[in-house]
Amino acid sequence: MGFEKRIEKGESGLAALELMLSLPILALVFVGIAAMVTSAARNYMAQRVQAEVQQEVQQAFMRVVDDCMAATSLRSERDGQYIRLYDGDRLVKLYFVNEDSRRVRKLVENLANFPMTGNHEWAMVEVTSFGAEEVDPLSRPGLYRIWLEAKSTTAGSVPYGLATEIYLPPQGGHP
């Protein structure tokens, strides 16, 4: 027998033709799987980022609106992007957008180091628009429109914003 090898039926190796066909098919299958995994991961990240943007905007906006409604008067400065809330003549709260050392615009309460948005590393939420303005001081005094819009600094994020109107009776409701 020696090194002589008998090839029986069904025991032959891969033919060149089979290899030429199977390798591209295998490559296609792997590329397809990789594309699916990449696409799923990207979608998952995008969903999480957008969820975080929505959550931060909703929480911050609710706090701002609640505080505004608890105040007796509201003053907006710097094109409406700086909101001062008063109880009588006493300043009780201040909301504004501050750009931090990493150039991320965050909504802050009273002080620049008290951010309400953008302090989470995942989505890095950045405020794109915030403010308050009186809707119509002549015909509807005391009616203010408040808005907040933000987006993530990660690529592909869609801005998310909320807006509403609140009514603070002029002179605190006293004639």
């Binding site: 929505q54 909703q58 906006f61 609106v65 509807r140 005391g142 009616l143 998310y160 909320l162 807006a163 509403t164 109107e165 609140i166 009514y167 009776p169």
Partner: peptide, 23 residues
């Protein structure tokens, strides 16, 4: 998110109605 936005839209109407009622 839609429900939250809807609540704020409704608040706009209530606020405007309150302003109109006062006038």
């Amino acid at each position: 998110a839609c429900r939250v936005r809807a609540v704020f839209l409704a608040r706009t109407q209530f606020s405007a109605a309150q302003a109109a009622a006062n006038q």
